[in-house]
Nucleic acid binder design. Structure first.
Lengths: 334, 334
DNA sequence: TTGTAAGCGTTATCAC
DNA sequence: GTGATAACGCTTACAA
């Protein structure tokens, strides 16, 4: 920048004024400065700028690089963030780098706000951070403190799955649990509540599982060892796919003998050859709400924490159909 | 940091010495400074540090958030980068943000080196950047200038696929082209060369395609409209899956009537229910080589550009088998 | 071992 | 409309 100033024959601050596009410089100066900048290949220094101005306009987003759902969410944040005049700083968690380390790194870069996708931190560990910068959590249903939360109504999602299956005539609907993964708890409770509402409380069956194909396959083994239900809701797509495979290998036809529903409507579910009925979350909207929530706290005055749970949508594909007629004696059973 | 200095009663530079862990401070001072730092919740400021020291130890990586292959590659870079004492700055390209914009942003943060995955920039657009910082390109086979290149030997990959199919007895082996996508050119030429080497030059058949499921499905239609080959090599997994689906829908059995090979050995290929024979790239090693290449240029003296092409490995799964015996007249045909 | 002075590239403040 | 000066938080160089 000093180069430009010397080149044009003006002072450094004046160059700064021109390059920032604020007013306080004559058209003539402006033109000559911009010309020189282009000629000299000037590139603004974000470090110096952030340091001096105390305003980086950086938003940090913490997410897991290995969760396609979160990656997609982040991708959808970019246009929103840019439009609001901010930059997105990616804080990727990996098996060797937890959320805490990532958040710390983002704050060292003076992020002004933080979007935490799939929060894993216990409330009190997040507390000191929340006092420093606005935080929005994406994908957690309940939290403490002045934190905005944007989530998916996971309980409603599994409820929709149960409704769909019940409408098809299913009664024995099992659920493959997601353990401690993000959203798993709500998905489980939504299943339980919906089953009860359909008068199927006695049919509730929660099988231990997880968010991976292996765990889905294991759940399938559990189900195969006992009396098979007529339908299964898995707590995410991957476990549904693992389960699907084990079932097919065991000679169970889908959807004739067993209907299967996944959760996430990921690319995997849409894959021809899988064609999985699944619960879709509105990812673009979650991205937009999350970004707006942080920016509002930054640009506007403080306000009460906002907790949003978006309604998901069941996407019906080829893995669900009415159950086979039960054997006669079943009629009498209650 | 000034706070700590005041709190402990020493000068600021001394605090800096302690916090950086270099020597030049007494044990006693060290202890008291660290204590105060913990107490005051001190967090180093990367901006100020980078600005003053002219050494950010940042490595920028440019990659596409929507390409799982690249995301996986980036994930594998983290441990390598950390071990070498650097930080990875993620520069994600999205549909709305091209490589040029992303690189520019990374350089504003004073990245000392750049890893460009799936380079899209024409040589001359990269030139001015290469003069500023060390650059390594990942996934391009030929480039100009003093740029390190770490890639996959894509031509060898398709060659392995042809070898495998030829060994099984296939002769009419078609290839679904990848158009202008990264690596596609080499995959095509590897196919051509391998076919010729097997004396199958007359059987060469390149069908227009791409890297998406839709393009794979379209290629399937092209193939179905004419005489079906006994095997198809797709230029990536997704197009193989699209093709697979169209074939199955058309009543073609796989692998009995048609063997299918993909490329990338992505998660999709490994999916039970897909179980696609595919060409695997050694992602962890590519990550390691790429990072080391940049860091070497940074830490060591300049040296000639290094061009590495890693040998891929064919992973044989369920979509390939010997062809059905041809009808008798075929014997006489040449 | 410790302190002092200076400066990294930029912007804020206030004069002119 | 323009320019001088100081300051952001930290590290380097050198002196004590």
């Amino acid at each position: 920048m000093a180069d430009i100033a010397r080149h044009v024959g003006v002072s450094r601050p004046l160059v700064s004024i021109v390059l920032r596009g604020v007013d306080g410089a004559s058209e003539e100066t402006r033109r000559r400065v911009l010309e020189a900048a282009a000629e000299l290949g000037y590139r603004p220094d974000s470090l110096a700028r952030g340091l001096r101005s105390n305003r980086t306009r950086n938003l940090g987003v913490v997410f897991a690089l290995r969760r396609p759902f979160e990656v997609e969410l982040v991708e959808d944040m970019f246009p929103v963030v840019e439009e609001l005049g901010y930059h997105l700083l990616l804080g990727a968690t990996t098996p060797g780098r937890g959320q805490e380390a990532v958040i710390d790194e983002l704050l060292r870069y003076r992020c002004e706000g933080l979007i935490v996708v799939g929060p894993e931190l216990h409330g009190h560990r997040l507390d000191p951070i929340v006092e420093e910068v606005p935080v929005v959590e994406v994908g957690r249903s309940v939290t403490r403190g002045p934190v905005d939360v944007v989530g998916n109504d996971d309980a409603l999602g599994t409820r929709q799955a149960v409704d769909h299956l019940a409408a098809l005539g299913h009664r024995r609907i099992a659920f493959v649990d997601g353990g401690a993964n993000p959203g798993a708890e709500d998905r489980r409770s939504g299943y339980r509540a919906a089953m009860a509402d359909h008068g199927l409380a006695r049919e509730i069956r929660v099988v231990p599982g997880g968010y991976t194909e292996d765990e889905g396959a294991k759940a399938a083994q559990t189900l195969l060892a006992e009396r098979l239900p007529t339908a299964v809701i898995a707590s995410n797509d991957l476990s549904a796919i693992g389960l699907l495979d084990s079932m097919l290998r065991a000679g169970v036809t889908v959807p004739e003998e067993l209907s299967v529903v996944g959760y996430d409507d990921s690319r995997f579910a849409r894959l021809p050859g899988i064609d999985l009925t699944s619960v879709r979350q509105d990812i673009p909207q979650m991205a937009q709400l999350a970004v707006h929530a942080v920016v509002e706290r930054l640009d506007l005055s403080p306000r009460a924490p906002k907790k949003v749970a978006l309604p998901p949508q069941l996407v019906i594909r080829g893995t669900t159909s009415p159950p086979r007629p039960e054997r006669a004696p079943e009629l009498g059973a209650r």
